[in-house]
């Protein structure tokens, strides 16, 4: 072994160029495939065909009807819950909590919400209404779940 070592040159120059080429290509690939993840979430809605004719017989509580009307540019002009006028989405949430209650003994699991919206209404209002009826975020960040069964009323003729 010692004899071998003596024969070698004092410093071996490794050509780094190919490795750096590959490494930069890798970096470029990863940078271009980088996707910024926006946290998105889903709301389940119950829309089996044929169920729109009426509530299923196993539902003991009639559905909560939330009706929203729209102005000419799609803005929300009025909102009612079971025929009672509702001011805003926080008011809607309060009324839902009054109706079904929270914690043990809550009727939230057995209650269904039916959304009846004007066709021209901007869709973000629907999501805000769904958010209001499906739960609330407490100041400490925990979520109190309310009604999970949500469906749309049959679409109106336009």
């Amino acid at each position: 072994m010692a004899k071998h070592r003596d024969e070698l040159p004092s410093k071996i120059a490794i050509d780094m160029t190919p490795m750096i080429d590959v490494v930069f290509q890798l970096i470029t690939f990863f940078m271009l495939t980088l996707k910024t993840v926006i946290s998105e979430g889903d709301f389940d809605i119950r829309m089996p065909l044929g169920a729109s004719a009426g509530a299923a017989p196993e539902d003991p509580i009639p559905p909560v009807r939330v009706k929203m009307t729209a102005g000419p540019s799609g803005e929300r002009t009025s909102m009612t819950m079971n025929g009672q006028p509702v001011g805003d989405f926080d008011d809607l949430r309060r009324r839902v909590i009054d109706l079904v209650g929270t914690g043990p003994g809550s009727n939230a699991d057995k209650t269904e919400v039916e959304l009846d919206c004007d066709p021209a209404l901007k869709y973000e209002n629907v999501i805000r209404a769904v958010t209001a009826v499906s739960g609330m975020v407490q100041p400490d960040g925990t979520v109190v779940e309310l009604i999970k069964k949500i469906k749309f009323a049959p679409p109106k003729k336009r």
């Binding site: 829309m47 799609g74 004007d118 021209a120 209404l121 869709y123 973000e124 629907v126 749309f152």
Partner: peptide, 18 residues
């Protein structure tokens, strides 16, 4: 669905799927 789209379009889309 885009937040600015019409609810009617969303409902029509769901209806087609149904």
């Amino acid at each position: 669905a885009d937040g600015r789209s019409n609810t009617g379009d969303v409902q029509d889309l769901i209806k087609v799927c149904q």
